[in-house]
Structures are given as C-alpha cells and as structure tokens.
Amino acid sequence: MLFYSFFKTLVGKEVAVELKNDVILTGTLHSVDQYLNIKLLTVNVVNQDRYPQLTSLKNCFIRGSVVRYVQIDPKDVDTELLQDATRKENSPQVGGGALMEDKK
C-alpha cells in the first residue's frame, strides 16, 4: 500500500513511464490503483520514430506489471516523509508474522 499512497500524492504531476519493452511514455499522472496500474493523460512517446503506431496516443491505461521504471521530478517527492513511511510499514513489530513466533 506504500507505493499506492506514494503515487496518489503524484497525481497531476508529469512523469515518464518506462515499460519493459523499452517504450517510454511521458504524460500527466491521472490516477493509480492498488496494482499500480497507471492512467496517463496527454501522452507523448519518447523516440516516436521507432514506434510510429503509438503516434496517435493521447490518453492511456498502463497495466502495472509491464512497468519497468517511473521517472519522477525530484522536487515532487518528500524523501523524509517517504523514508519515515517506509520504516513504519516495514518495522518488525507490525504485521501478522508474530502469529508464528514462540510464546515465552
């Protein structure tokens, strides 16, 4: 859920999504869901000569599983907040793991 929340804070910002087939799409992040599927608006395809079939692309849905990277403008990210949230989400005390531990 950490990255779902993270991407929700980036809604409306410009991002570049690099797919596993090397296509890079830039555009405005419209929405994201729990699978990290992404909807982009005003899409531009980087290296358009290589992918002429994508020239007419304006808005698109990207399945989360085909994403390799998402490039983000560093000024859109609060790294302190992100680190604190990561430590909280992954702290040893949290989660169902305790069920399996021996009771002393």
């Binding site: 993270f6 596993k20 490039q71 983000i72 403008d73």
Partner: peptide, 11 residues
Amino acid sequence: SVGMLFVRGDI
C-alpha cells in the same frame, strides 16, 4: 542518470 526513479520490484 535519473534524479528520482521508481523501480518495479519484479525486475
């Protein structure tokens, strides 16, 4: 070089 990058875990 990239300033800020999200990397999907499956790669």
